[in-house]
Amino acid sequence: MEETKFTPQTWPDKAEQATLEGKNKFVGIWIFICSDITLFASVFATYLSLKDKGPAGMEFSAASLFELPLAFVMTMLLLTSSLTSVYAMYHLKNHNFKGVQIWMSITVLLGLGFLALEIYEFYHYVHIGFGYTQSAFSSAFFTLVGTHGLHVVIGLVWIVCLIVRNAKRGLNLYNAPKYYAASIFWHFIDVIWVFIFTVVYLMGVLG
């Protein structure tokens, strides 16, 4: 059944939830996201309570460290990648597999751009002496932003695997929920980033 060939006219509405397996995947990814909310809540709370704290006379502070132009470009990249994965899901609804693959690939490219900038940023901080073990502030910062970065890496690997493994299979009820779950996860990464750029970067430069 799952390998049935569909045409746009036989493709069911809500194809990602047409099977029991699809429904399970849909609820499953959401339950995972809810547990992830609490993970991020704890690293966020840790960061906020340890912000600017460290050894006496520490030269580093959020106000002097963070630069808004870089955070702005990273935000735009991730926000746009969220829209491109919405486009992929639009084509999934219309049973246009090529569209899904192309828009998911664009999402991956934007995600890679974001990741490259984040790696550059971390490299820069470590280079000027703000390493992971430098202070309570640096540990909390790298743990928070790094955990988000790890999610981006996992999301990218996940989507690339989907694109490659299903390249010859075409769209069916077996892989539609998989694409859908990956897209929900990718949006969640963007949700977390909205809080990171607000709480860490914008409120950081305010001091």
Partner: peptide, 28 residues
């Protein structure tokens, strides 16, 4: 609202938000 188990999902998400808020409050 017609998505599978959306009621359960909403409950979990907003409860997650409450837990997150409590955590901020406690840590700060």
């Amino acid at each position: 609202k017609k998505a599978s188990h959306m009621g359960v999902i909403s409950t979990f998400v907003w409860f997650g938000a409450v837990i997150a808020f409590t955590m901020f409050l406690t840590f700060l």
